[in-house]
Design a binder for these strands. Structure first.
Length: 465
RNA sequence: GGGGUAGUGGUCUAGCUUGGUAUGAUCCGUGGUUCGGGACCACGUGACCGUCGGUUCAAAUCCGACCUACCCCA
């Protein structure tokens, strides 16, 4: 399992060995979530729920099936998706008059209902989200968590009185992403997609991109400003204070289990997974080191540690399996548990506990009496160091280029005037994908690599995953 | 979208050229000795060889299609 030598093979192996997923389900791109993987996914789900709930979004759950005529209302949208939808054409033995499709995303399921729900300005803003499965018939090579045909999808959908309020929503989404990235210890860039690469039907799209160790970019999610592009075909209108009927402005924010893929890919190492403490199913594992004649004594004390940490709100597990300690170390390292506590006679005599950090491998001794605070401190250090390391990796793999020749497999920053012709030329010559221009006002002084016109905005390019 | 490789107990694998229902390891189960970095001994369970079809007295083995996985190139 060498991450540096063959990232792709390493990733496949680790996903399987750490027991996150079972790829043997006989439909392409549809994997089974195994218990350990699902727990991690649910931990991420709960962070996302918490974020949306605390920003006054309401959780909803729409049907999986969408009638063909609803799907077809927005021209750009259907053009972007109709080559990758799964169709339901029969009910039992009878062909359906109106075919049904499995949602590839939920605009066309939700918006007909929104047009009924929204009556007055008092109904706005309408902020909803759901965590559901969506289906896309991916033609490219599938890969666990990263490119799948059944997607575990988070999508927020909002309606606003005007563009200004919708823009405020987009900013709030940026803040949500910033908080999430801290918990996942994943750095990212917010990049405004080119017009030819935006979400089908959107006014504009902001991609949330991170960088894999292989040098390829990975889109973690996206935030879309729809303006009134959907509210017109779906007739979502409200009556304002003056009695006028106006179309709402809408936004969406979508993410998926790719977040799990990114956690695996960015933090994992040759020994296995490395989970950020905030999403680790078990934050701490206790390994009693038993010796002949002291089995009960050590076991009892290990259980006391377990109880103490559990009471303090730490997600802790005690491994009492009949295995050699070494075998347990390897096992928990593979599973990515952030902190391992070892307790043997030697420790007990000295009133101490041995800590071993998963991220750095550092071993240290801590007084038994201060167990809880030392554990909490160590977990927060781990999270901070993991985020830091990932951020530095991303920075180190970002290069500013003045020509498009011999570009490395990294995140490339260069100048672009913003013109469409020059953009296409950049992609053709660099053989990379334009991710977009940063929305955070990043400073840049240079010229467009194609036409030479001065520009103050950089553009980022990468090989897309 | 184009090209390539592969599919044998839960996992990995031998056998395929030269057709005769399958090798070894690991995991798992039971009992025992062990336990500060992957323990050992003994016994035991488990596959008709991806699916469908064809050739044949006989197919894991030869042929075809499909499914799935992985790799490479637009």
């Amino acid at each position: 399992m060498k991450k540096a030598e063959d990232f792709s093979e390493w990733y496949n192996e680790i996903v399987e060995k750490a027991n996150l997923t079972d790829k043997r389900y006989p439909i392409k791109g549809m994997n089974v979530w195994t218990p350990y993987g699902w727990k991690i996914m649910q931990a991420i789900d709960s962070h996302i729920r918490q974020e949306f709930d605390s920003t006054n979004h309401q959780e909803v759950c729409f049907p999986l099936l969408i009638p063909e005529d609803q799907f077809a209302k927005e021209k750009e949208h259907i053009k972007g998706f109709d080559s990758e939808v799964f169709w339901v054409t029969h009910a039992g033995l009878n062909p359906l008059d109106v075919k049904l499709l499995l949602r590839p995303t939920s605009e066309t399921a939700m918006y007909p209902m929104f047009s009924i729900w929204v009556r007055s300005h008092a109904d706005l803003p309408l902020k909803t989200y759901q965590i559901v499965n969506t289906f896309r018939y991916e033609t490219k090579q599938t890969r666990a968590f990263i490119r799948v045909r059944e997607i575990h999808f988070f999508e927020s959908h909002t309606c606003h009185a005007d563009l200004e309020d919708a823009e405020r929503q987009v900013k709030e989404d940026y803040e949500i992403m910033a908080r999430l990235s801290k918990k996942l210890c994943i750095p990212y860039k917010l990049l405004k997609r080119t017009d030819w690469d935006k979400f089908p039907g959107a006014f504009y799209t902001v991609g949330i991109d991170t960088l894999l160790p292989s040098g390829k970019s990975l889109q973690l999610g996206s935030i879309h400003q729809y303006k009134d592009n959907f509210s017109k075909p779906y007739d979502i209108k409200y009556e304002d204070q003056d009695g006028q009927h106006k179309h709402v402005h809408q936004t969406t924010y979508g993410m998926s289990e790719r977040l799990v893929g990114a956690v695996v890919a960015l933090h994992g190492d040759d020994k296995g997974l490395v989970l950020p403490p905030d999403i680790a199913t078990m934050q701490v594992v206790i390994i009693p080191v038993l010796a002949k004649g002291a089995v009960e004594e050590v076991t009892e004390e290990a259980r006391a540690l377990h109880a103490e940490l559990k009471d303090a709100g730490v997600r802790v597990h005690i491994d009492e399996r009949d295995l050699r300690p070494g075998a347990k170390y390897y096992d928990w390292e593979l599973k990515g548990v952030p902190l391992r506590l070892e307790l043997g006679l030697r420790d007990m005599e000295k009133q101490q506990v041995t800590f071993v950090r998963r991220d750095s491998g550092d071993k240290s001794l801590h007084p038994r009496a201060r167990l809880v605070e030392e554990v909490k401190k160590t977990l927060s250090d781990i999270a901070e160091d993991m985020f830091d390391l990932a951020r530095k990796d991303m920075e180190a793999n970002t290069v500013t280029a003045e020509t498009l020749d011999n570009l490395p497999s990294k995140l490339i920053r260069t100048g672009w005037c913003g013109g469409e012709d020059c953009g296409h030329e950049i992609e053709a010559r660099s053989n990379k994908h334009i991710l977009g221009t940063p929305i955070d006002g990043e400073r840049f002084e240079g010229v467009c690599v194609i036409c030479g016109k001065p520009t103050d905005k950089p553009v980022y390019l990468a090989d897309a995953m």
